[in-house]
Amino acid sequence: MTTTQDTSLDQWKTWGEIHQQPQIWRDWGQAFDVASVRDWIAAQSHDEVWFCGAGSSAYIGDIIAASVPNTRAVPSTDLVADPHAFLTGNRPLVVSFGRSGNSTESIGTLDALDALAPDAPRLHITCNPDSALATRPSPGPVKVINLPEATHDAGFAMTSSFSTMLLTALALFDASCDVPARFGALADQLEALLPTLGTPRPARAVYVGSGALTYAAREAALKVMELTAGQTPALWDSALGFRHGPKSFVRDDTAITVFTSPQQPTAAYEADLLAELRAQFPRARVTSVGAGGEIDIAMPYGPAWAAPLCIAAAQIDSVRWAADLGLNVDDPFAGQGTLSRVVSGVTLYPVAP
């Protein structure tokens, strides 16, 4: 492992946004009135809890739904494309995540709810207090959580916005806990971890995990592809699913990261996969990150809570690899006109009641 102490990277906002996460979590843990929001949630009438968002915001929902009972991840990209398939006859509590809060799919989700489930309660967690998620009126019950201004990442890739939205939702929907203490403990872990992270750039990368960490692997792979502008292909899968075809992606020049769980039998399956990969691909770089891993991350609160710590390894590598490729880390697609920080160019179509 190398160290993250590299002053040449200080020029990039994304680098600073990764490193500000511990302080954001500490401060937000103290300021966040969790009890009042949990009381509001308990007072709502709903059939299910849905977590909605697009891209990284959708993966937040995947991580939580994989670990918190009676919740469901419904990407806004799916909901907007076929709203009747989801909303006919349902009264969900719809939790929408949005860094900008203004993406086309965020607005399309509100439109679909207005048309098909106007009375369904809505909880909006956003990093932009001026956004549609923060300010648009709702015909039914709505609660807005505006995260600290620092979480409104200026860089292309979601980093502190992703982690803080995830931890905020876990504080609301997982078992009740001492939020200031837990956020503070996680901040201490990440602060100690960050200086130890950083690996040489591979030709391609793989991230795998189990349960909630499967979707942490998905977010990690996305960070690599986003920040290296697709020049470092990245794949994600579950630890057991990886053998079923996706392993064909691996070559000698591949870096494979396995996010390891403290739970059994999960940890045993992951140990078997690590041993198999090292035997079959002796020239590939295989690293375990997580409970008992080569990068050891204690997970006393469970894998979902530790997901931001695991993903931090990919955040750090992604910035380093992008800089190594000579890219603009804060806008890797500058001049291409293909991807932008807030997705644009999507036409919304009316939703018939």
Rank of each mutant, 00 (worst) to 15 (best):
G292I: 09
A284I: 14
L277P: 03
H244M: 07
G292A: 10
P246R: 07
F259A: 06
P282N: 03
F281S: 11
V250C: 03
F281Y: 15
D253C: 06
F249V: 14
D252A: 15
A284G: 12
A284R: 14
T287Q: 10
F259P: 07
I256V: 15
R278F: 00
P282D: 05
L274G: 01
D272G: 12
F249D: 05
A284S: 15
R251S: 09
A268D: 13
G290C: 10
A268P: 03
L277T: 12
S288E: 10
T254W: 04
T260M: 12
F259M: 15
T266Y: 04
K247L: 06
R251H: 08
Q280L: 12
T254S: 14
R278T: 04
P246N: 04
R278C: 06
S288D: 08
H244W: 02
A275F: 00
T287D: 09
G245M: 04
Q263G: 07
G292F: 05
A284M: 09
T266V: 15
T254A: 10
Q280S: 13
P265E: 01
T257I: 14
S288A: 14
F281L: 09
R285M: 13
G245C: 03
V286K: 08
D272L: 04
V250T: 14
V258W: 01
V289M: 07
A268C: 02
F259S: 08
